[in-house]
Design a protein around this nucleic acid. Sequence first.
DNA 1: GGAAAAAGTTTCCTATAGGAGACGAAACGT
DNA 2: ACGTTTCGTCTCCTATAGGAAACTTTTTCC
Lengths: 204, 204
Amino acid sequence: MEPIPSEETGLGPEAMEAPDGEILGKMIRDARKEKGLTLEEAARAAAIGRSTLSKIENNQTRPSFEIIRRLMQTLELETPQLFVQSGQSGVTGRRDFTRTGLGEHKETSTYDHELLCSELTSKRMVPYISTIKARDVTEFDNWVRHRGEEFMFVLSGELTLYTEHYRPLRMGPGDSVYYDSGMGHGCVSVSEEDAKVLWVSLEV
Amino acid sequence: MEPIPSEETGLGPEAMEAPDGEILGKMIRDARKEKGLTLEEAARAAAIGRSTLSKIENNQTRPSFEIIRRLMQTLELETPQLFVQSGQSGVTGRRDFTRTGLGEHKETSTYDHELLCSELTSKRMVPYISTIKARDVTEFDNWVRHRGEEFMFVLSGELTLYTEHYRPLRMGPGDSVYYDSGMGHGCVSVSEEDAKVLWVSLEV
DNA sequence: GGAAAAAGTTTCCTATAGGAGACGAAACGT
DNA sequence: ACGTTTCGTCTCCTATAGGAAACTTTTTCC
């Protein structure tokens, strides 16, 4: 077995990678069994060869996109599912959430966003860690708004969450919120240091 | 559960699309242009040949699944796209993730789940904190499985994430994973103390 | 247990996917 | 205009995907 980069801050994106030789076949076989189909039946339904399907399930070939597409329809495999599992899966290693490294980085005057598991493109939720810079605020007006829902979890620091429809909410480590992100919202760090927040966003 | 029409993928109105001959190439070319990449750049980024990409874009070949997958990652193409072509808000505060009070509590031999923001009933994502009890495990077989996607973030402790299709992954505080939860998965704490994990689950 | 049938694997062959590099065609500057 | 560079296509070749059928394994039924 290959060495596992467990020590490093970044288990690489391929930490969990399995040359999808490993995964793809098992998934398809599982899906077929699930439906109680034989090789013959499944292959015919997908209009491919019996032997071809066998090889695919045993990872003895690297099937074409077209073949996979037909199998997906036949076995009623969800697309995201297939890609989530067969792609370099979304493992982002990052020892200690005070530090980050991997992932896309977007910085604004107030926030500092770090996408998690960004190498996984087809996911429906978007997780990221934000550093909220300490600053003074008397009146909040800088609303953020985007269609969907959002979950927020405070990792460190003290902050105030302003929302359009509720009164400001003081939050600390371990506190969490769930809200409709179409509602204007925004955070302000009230501690000396910056605050760290984990966000998981779901677009609608 | 609804029966899925045999012809369609069940993705929605714009879901299904024709024998890809026509459309696949165009989509990829559009996506590449969108990102302002040349054939050379895109091909290199996706680790495929320049000529191969050209042929794909011109529909002169029927690419393998693997090739398409790499291109999707590189061009950040959404899967469904490829295959087809606020009401209520709520806020919950909760101090310190070492203990919680509100929320439903579910305990099993291995896990100890604490739902977050549970008084908000209509949310689509389900966030919860789990305590994973330390224990010895030689062979993992206790798979958890549920349709959807899941994001996991380690708050404290050291644990090993077992998944059906990948090799075990050692994780520590700050590490995160995103995966299809239809794939069997499960955690084992490998530290002395129990491990704490934040999960956000999305049912499909 | 043994024969027959069914399910799955492997072999063999042909068509073609995919990469290297040649070639062509715009788009520079001088 | 002419070279030079840069982007895209085309040609050629090798490795291999995919199907038909032979072969092997498992299941079923007597």
